[in-house]
Design a protein around this nucleic acid. Structure first.
Lengths: 220, 220
DNA sequence: CGTCTTCGATACAGTCGCGTATCCGATGCA
DNA sequence: TGCATCGGATACGCGACTGTATCGAAGACG
């Protein structure tokens, strides 16, 4: 059914290897950026294709020439996010100083948390958008895998940082690492959304809370 | 503007003290129940008024006779939830055995967590709906206060349980109590949604995780 | 320099949901 | 039993969004 048309569109928009032309890639990025903003502002479902295009400076024609549907765009947004996390992981690993710096445990932890927060998308926008996307993925089976992949990347990234910090500090955590990371992520999300609900401009003592939690979990 | 009409409607649907007739209250409940289900299934924004009414066995006429808008219904859903939490708190306090039962700390904690989970709305439906409502409240200032009130009630409820458990056990927690509760709530949410994303029927080891976390936080 | 392709804009038809105005049966009250 | 009010159903017009089919300009290529 309509396989000919679809094949034509697919062939037209994407080279045999899956690459896009530079121009095409640029419009895709702009559309995805606009989508993330609107997802955060209005939610995935309430962000109309029309509005996304308008914000990106295109019309719906451009959208449907690049994506089959909004869900398909969501999937690509998630994929891109996953790649960004991988890159962030590498940067963080590089920027982390080697062992033997003689810093106190608290300081090392604080540094690691700072690095994590810095590596995170700075704007809350992205966090809210991801929360929206997760909820959307909860009801949209096609998106689940994409979300889980992003999540896995992020976890790996944090695990790397945290392990390095622990190595430098010589401490141990009783709880299994994956669980610790889930915990940190959940707390991060929770703190940011609570601060938003309370009408604060910036999360109150986010770093302090994360540090306190880690401090409570690490033993010698 | 239209103040006369609004006043009429207000007067018609609600007695001077704010009470509703039994019949009216019943349809309101049915509409709210249907709304919560649909919020969990499709999200707040995608749950159309039409669909809510259909599921509740009414038409839109009934809806607009009872609520001014979907947001107004959300607010009432939140209010109801807040009251339910208060009731749950009382029940929990009553059902909790007195001190001096000679149980181990782990067992007491496990009991407290069990009580908490039992007092929680059993279906994940309600949790997801609340997550949707929170995200919706994030963008809808009129709803923020309502959501925060529910949250405060829930926290108070948990704080009560937890404090009782701690008293029985003689333990202490280094982290401030409100923060601990946020943490537990965040972990609860996170675990449930991860299990749903992974396609599991029931959250894997929810109790165990909560217990482990508490165990890690409690000192003598 | 002309042709061909690519990519986004435009135009269109169709669907869905909203909120209001109005109506009618049921229920309560004298 | 008759009347008034209440509560939900019905009917209507409206606006927004969708996805597709088609068009035209900018850029690639020989």
């Amino acid at each position: 059914m309509t396989s000919i048309r679809e094949a034509q569109r697919g062939a037209r928009r994407q080279g045999p290897g899956g690459e896009f032309s530079a121009r095409r890639q640029a419009t895709r990025e702009r559309l995805m950026d606009a989508a993330v903003e609107l997802f955060a502002e209005r939610g995935v479902l309430a962000a109309s294709v029309e509005e996304i295009c308008e914000r990106a400076g295109f019309t719906r024609g451009a959208f449907y020439s690049n994506f089959d549907s909004k869900d398909e765009l969501c999937l690509d947004v998630l994929r891109r996010k996953g790649e960004q996390h991988l890159v962030a992981l590498q940067q963080v690993v590089e920027s982390m100083p080697g062992a033997g710096s003689g810093l106190s445990r608290a300081q090392v932890i604080r540094d690691a948390v700072g690095l994590f927060l810095q590596a995170q998308p700075k704007e809350r926008t992205e966090l809210i958008a991801m929360m929206e996307l997760r909820l959307h993925a909860l009801r949209t089976p096609e998106l689940r895998e994409g979300w889980l992949a992003v999540h896995a990347n992020l976890c790996a990234s944090i695990a790397g940082q945290l392990q390095m910090a622990l190595d430098r500090v010589g401490g141990r955590i009783g709880m299994p690492m994956p669980q610790v990371i889930e915990l940190l992520g959940a707390m991060y999300e929770n703190t940011v959304s609570m601060s938003l609900l309370n009408g604060e401009d910036a999360p109150t003592g986010l770093t302090a809370q994360l540090v306190a939690l880690l401090d409570g979990l690490i033993h010698d």
